[in-house]
Amino acid sequence: MGCVSSKRRKQEPGYEEPTVLAAETPFTVSEVEALHELFKKLSNAIIADGLIHREEFQLALFRNRNRRNLFADRIFDLFDVKRNGVIEFGEFVRSLGVFHPNAPVADKIAFAFRLYDLRQTGFIEREELKEMVLALLHESDLALSEDVVETIVDKTFGEADTQGDGKIDPEEWKEFVSKHPSLIKNMTLPYLKDITLAFPSFVVRSEVDESD
């Protein structure tokens, strides 16, 4: 059953078996199959090679392949675990797993830290925080004066950098999030729980029995 399709899928670069991915993530096998439907759509949007290129990621997020965005770039880089410039299916599923409502909170906190550690130094520095605030102001209609931005960044940094060494380390970040749990709200995508409903076309073509 489903042999032709399975062979075709195995030829896709970076394709991994749903059973393997389901075992390593909060997703069920059915959900991984549904994510494959989504992945096929995203990865063939511009270049039909079964890999998500940066432009395809931006196109999906903003309906515009040329619109660069600091956060989209950082998320793309974090999803692209192999750092080869594309997101493969396995990378896509494992990374989205962190955003699953059932994923461990510690994973969400760690992922958010890596997201905000723009220069990947192992710390979130004051300049990085300011850069992110300026980037979001640039993206939104919110207009804040330079003084206000400095005040917000100083205040936040002062609270989060409990050791006062000018940088936020993972432990300080964890403590800061525990005081402000809403900070990782964006690390959960409730939609992921309904992914099989979002891609019902998959259901009639499911190749893997959940009981396997």
């Binding site: 998320i75 993206e139 964006n186």
Partner: peptide, 25 residues
């Protein structure tokens, strides 16, 4: 009020930081 928010709160609430669009059909 943005000024009373902490910077990470502003960032995490930003619309530009959202993967929701990935799932739009």
């Amino acid at each position: 009020k943005p000024v009373s928010m902490n910077a990470f709160e502003l960032i995490s609430r930003s619309q530009s930081f959202s993967l929701d669009n990935l799932f739009e059909k």
